[in-house]
Simulated assay, not measured.
Amino acid sequence: MLKDRHGRTINYLRLAVTDRCNLRCFYCMPEEGIDWLGREELMSYEEMLRLCSVFLKMGIEKIRITGGEPFVRKGFMPFLTKLSRLDGLQQLTITTNGVLTAPFVPELKRIGVRSVNLSLDTLDRNRFFAITRRDELPNVLETLEQLLQHDVDVKLNAVVMEGKNTDDILPLVELTKELPISVRFIEEMPFNGGDAAPKLLSWDHVQILDSIKAKYPNLYKLPDPAFSTSFNYQIPGHKGNVGIIAAYTRSFCGTCNRIRLTPLGDLKTCLYGGSVLNFKDLMRAGASEEEIQAALYKAVSMKDLNGWEAEKNNSGLASLSASMATIGG
Rank of each mutant, 00 (worst) to 15 (best):
283 M>K: 05
112 G>W: 01
67 G>P: 02
171 P>L: 00
275 S>A: 15
106 P>D: 12
54 V>E: 14
108 L>F: 12
92 L>N: 07
264 L>W: 05
44 S>W: 00
3 K>H: 11
179 L>W: 03
210 D>M: 10
64 R>H: 08
71 F>W: 08
36 W>K: 13
279 F>H: 06
144 L>T: 11
235 I>H: 05
55 F>S: 10
95 T>L: 07
98 G>L: 08
227 F>R: 14
295 A>N: 04
219 L>R: 03
293 Q>P: 07
310 A>V: 06
13 L>F: 11
291 E>T: 14
120 L>W: 05
52 C>G: 04
111 I>G: 07
136 E>F: 15
218 N>S: 12
81 T>S: 10
186 I>E: 02
53 S>W: 03
235 I>Y: 02
301 S>R: 02
283 M>D: 13
182 S>Q: 09
68 G>C: 02
62 K>V: 09
115 S>T: 13
81 T>Q: 10
1 M>L: 11
300 V>Q: 02
170 L>G: 02
242 V>I: 15
61 E>T: 06
86 L>K: 11
176 T>S: 01
121 D>S: 03
212 I>N: 03
116 V>C: 10
52 C>Y: 01
316 G>D: 06
220 Y>G: 02
69 E>T: 08
98 G>P: 12
152 V>N: 00
66 T>H: 00
226 A>R: 06
105 V>S: 11
247 A>V: 06
286 G>L: 13
98 G>D: 11
133 R>D: 04
221 K>T: 08
32 E>H: 15
244 I>G: 07
61 E>I: 04
297 Y>K: 09
25 C>Q: 13
73 R>I: 04
179 L>Q: 03
269 T>V: 15
326 T>G: 00
127 R>C: 10
192 N>M: 03
53 S>R: 15
174 E>F: 01
182 S>I: 01
122 T>Y: 11
100 L>C: 04
118 L>Y: 09
269 T>E: 12
196 A>D: 09
257 N>K: 10
205 H>I: 05
180 P>V: 04
299 A>W: 01
208 I>T: 07
192 N>Y: 00
184 R>T: 05
288 S>H: 14
5 R>E: 10
51 L>K: 05
194 G>T: 15
106 P>L: 11
215 K>H: 13
29 M>T: 13
35 D>N: 15
118 L>M: 12
132 T>Q: 00
58 M>Q: 02
77 M>G: 02
154 V>I: 07
64 R>G: 06
1 M>Q: 07
285 A>K: 15
231 F>W: 03
235 I>V: 14
319 S>F: 08
101 T>R: 00
268 K>Y: 10
113 V>Q: 01
234 Q>E: 05
56 L>C: 07
139 N>G: 02
217 P>G: 00
228 S>Y: 02
69 E>S: 08
274 G>A: 14
240 G>W: 03
68 G>V: 10
86 L>S: 03
285 A>F: 01
123 L>Y: 13
48 M>N: 14
289 E>P: 03
88 G>S: 07
280 K>P: 05
